[in-house]
Write a protein that binds this DNA or RNA. Structure first.
Lengths: 239, 239
DNA sequence: CAGTGGTCTAGACCACTGA
DNA sequence: CAGTGGTCTAGACCACTGA
């Protein structure tokens, strides 16, 4: 039973040739005209398959020359960056957000806020804990551009954390994440119940709406309690 | 000067409506027939634009019902996972790999190798340091399936690290990365010149060729010396 | 200059599914 | 059952660029 569309079948067959090693980097792939003849289909169907492989970075296409298996350099992996509340609840655990601090500031006087968001004016600064089954697993420190989201001043974070609130109210954004490690500061240590200097995973995320900064957040996870997963490949990895 | 293909212009215009908030999650997008009329083009052109948005996860398409702005849940970010040697040299620094240990084992007797790769038989176990401008910045511990890459037993890692060697000899693979933090072990600490327990970023990468395990590697970076960057969005984030 | 990919057209048939 | 998206056809013209 193969109800697979033809363009998808072509894509998978060429992809398999590349991932199995039958076609090696630099090798030329049959031209669209040759593939048309081979599959007995229209050129658009072949083109759809090959365009998808080019978009995924597996092949390079050059006019007049043809299509070639690309060299795997900086492979772009797909990284899942889930909403923490959804993720915790998805594992069947209870989720809670505990606010630790709240403060209105202005990028004109708050140098850190200015450094992260630029000159956006009034900002809301929050810090809090993400808690799964009564155990804090992440500390977060957030700066929100109030010019863009004034109504967040009245928001209630007892049911959902600021990140989830923002996701609902500022639905689609552009984002940049920086992932690193750090040793727990005094504040992190007290909040997370660990020792100062203990190893933590840190995610710094800056999100924009068009050209305006929406929010900057640093989330700090105790080492071993949280992992990010990124994948590359046609299917999920074999078991 | 807009030499942009029409399908790309349509994609960008709909994307802008979503990212600017003009269209909100759940909102219906004009049908392909309406967009055909609006842009005065063929349906395939509209379809190419909308299919790209659906592939990127920005819209959901349902037969009979139409196309709708998706809810931003687990957004898939693009994570750059560069080759360490290329990255260091791309920054204009000198790169070197220093091998620390080398050992042939068998998954029949080596429990850790079996746990990571499965029952693949003979394996090569390596540990070494990635060095930029004479400063070690990453420790790596690697297990390689010799059944798949027997010639690596004779390879010389003085010019390129095992990862780069594998990239050249086993060009395209599937991969899964797990990114977390850990405290430096005694071995990490000695190799990297840091204190035991000091915070480190750890990347565990398992790569496959079709259904066969090729290699498992853990790379450990001193906190603050290395960051991973992941992005989501139509363009690069504003400055 | 000739082969290749990039794009686009104006149709077509179909599966699906919600009004 | 009618509107929608999914797919596909058989053409077309063009820009590019390497033989």
């Amino acid at each position: 039973m193969s109800s697979l569309p033809l363009h998808e079948r072509i894509r998978q067959e060429v992809e398999s040739s590349i991932l199995s090693g039958e076609l090696r980097p630099g090798d030329r792939i049959s031209s669209e005209f040759e593939l048309m003849a081979h599959y007995g289909c229209a050129r658009m169907t072949v083109n759809k398959a090959m365009s998808a492989l080019a978009a995924a970075g597996l092949i390079d296409r050059r006019k007049r020359a043809g299509s070639f298996v690309a060299r795997p350099r900086n492979v772009a992996m797909m990284l899942d960056v889930p909403d923490l509340m959804s993720e915790v609840m998805g594992r069947g655990q209870r989720y809670a957000y505990r606010q630790l601090s709240r403060q209105i500031a202005d990028t004109a006087h708050d140098r850190q806020a200015f450094a992260e968001l630029g000159a956006v004016g009034r900002v809301l600064r929050l810090s809090g804990l993400h808690v799964a089954d009564d155990t804090p697993f992440a500390f977060e420190e957030r700066i929100i551009n109030l010019a863009l989201v004034p109504e967040i001043e009245q928001a209630d974070f007892s049911q959902e954390p600021p990140g989830t609130w923002l996701l609902k109210h500022i639905p689609w954004t552009e984002a940049e994440n920086r992932i690193g490690a750090l040793g727990a500061s005094r504040e992190h240590a007290r909040a997370l119940g660990i020792a100062i200097g203990e190893s933590c995973l840190a995610i710094d995320r800056h999100t924009w709406r068009a050209t305006d900064s929406v929010t900057f957040v640093r989330q700090v996870f105790v080492a071993g309690t949280y992992e990010l997963v990124a994948r590359f490949g046609p299917s999920r990895p074999p078991a």
